[in-house]
């Protein structure tokens, strides 16, 4: 009897592991009050760079979006760009032209020649937060103000450039997120669960026993309370939101002997140590993920 019970428990346990993730599981809809079209100006001047606070300086003023690019914003871009022919649909992918990287024949370097590259997938995967009816892109209900994901570096770059902006460099991103002191997080020196969206942060969009950690609306951690879930105001000294957690952010740098593109900020799927302002991730520029998004600079 005991053995039978044990076998049943193990079988049940294994079966629960085989269940599919429900991408249509309901998510709350919250208006954060943060304007995703707003920009912050980062003044020229010195700042501390990296984990060991090296002296660095950026000698020009620049603007950064205060939030990540949202699904709604990106879908607007897709519709406009599709209409004017600057992007096209090829084999269930939106693609666009890229002029190519200089190739230095580095040890693990892959060539990125001029050509068309994926911006976003347009297939039937349920994880996508947008849909395409053959003519028009729309955002799936409830995800309008969440960060755009499943977007490649090419897709992020193209969006920014379409609106006369660009992706920020790693240095620009770090200064905008950190300010001019040595804090490890945008808001200060310590991280609480309601500062940012990271793994097991227990935000209203997360359920670790089923679908796991999901994105939170851009600017969510602004000190507001959402149905009793009290967030802490986690803006950077220059007013940027979501620079820790939620989704990784593509940056613009192309380094010698590398084809990788770098990301900053950590994501909803990682522990807090990866949210520190100097932490980096990288991937091929065609890489797409539910945990990678971007914001623009200009």
């Amino acid at each position: 009897m005991k053995r039978l019970f044990l076998c049943l428990m193990i079988t049940l346990f294994l079966l629960t592991a085989c269940q599919a993730v429900d991408f249509d599981a309901p998510a709350p809809v919250y208006e954060t009050g943060i304007d995703s079209n707003a920009w912050a100006t980062i003044p020229a001047g010195p700042f501390f760079e990296g984990q060991f606070n090296h002296n660095a300086s950026i000698d020009y003023n620049y603007d950064m979006m205060i939030t990540l690019v949202t699904n709604a914003q990106y879908v607007d871009y897709l519709n406009a760009a599709l209409a004017d022919g600057s992007i096209k649909l090829v084999d269930e992918q939106i693609v666009g032209f890229y002029e190519g990287d200089p190739f230095n024949n580095g040890r693990h370097e892959e060539e990125v020649p001029a050509g068309d590259y994926i911006y976003i997938p347009v297939d039937n995967r349920a994880a996508l937060r947008y849909q395409f009816d053959g003519k028009q892109f729309t955002v799936k209900d409830t995800w309008e103000n969440h960060p755009m994901t499943f977007v490649s570096w090419f897709g992020a770059k193209a969006y920014c450039e379409y609106y006369d902006g660009r992706l920020p460099t790693e240095q620009e991103w770090e200064k905008a997120a950190r300010g001019t002191d040595i804090r490890p997080y945008a808001w200060g020196y310590e991280l609480a669960r309601n500062n940012a969206n990271f793994i097991t942060s227990r935000d209203p969009f997360e359920n670790m026993s089923t679908f796991g950690s999901r994105t939170t609306p851009v600017g969510f951690y602004n000190g507001k309370s959402y149905d009793g879930y009290q967030t802490l105001d986690s803006a950077s000294p220059f007013g940027l939101y979501d620079t820790a957690g939620n989704v990784w952010e593509w940056t613009s740098n192309i380094y010698e002997q590398e084809h990788y593109r770098y990301m900053r900020g950590g994501s909803k799927d990682l522990y807090e140590a990866n949210l520190r302002v100097w932490m980096r991730n990288n991937a091929r520029p065609t890489y797409i993920s539910p945990a990678i998004g971007f914001r623009c600079a200009r």
Partner: peptide
């Protein structure tokens, strides 16, 4: 397993 659908596998 893809990143988007990994949670049940990760949990197990």
């Amino acid at each position: 397993v893809d990143e988007a659908v990994q949670q049940p596998v990760t949990n197990l």
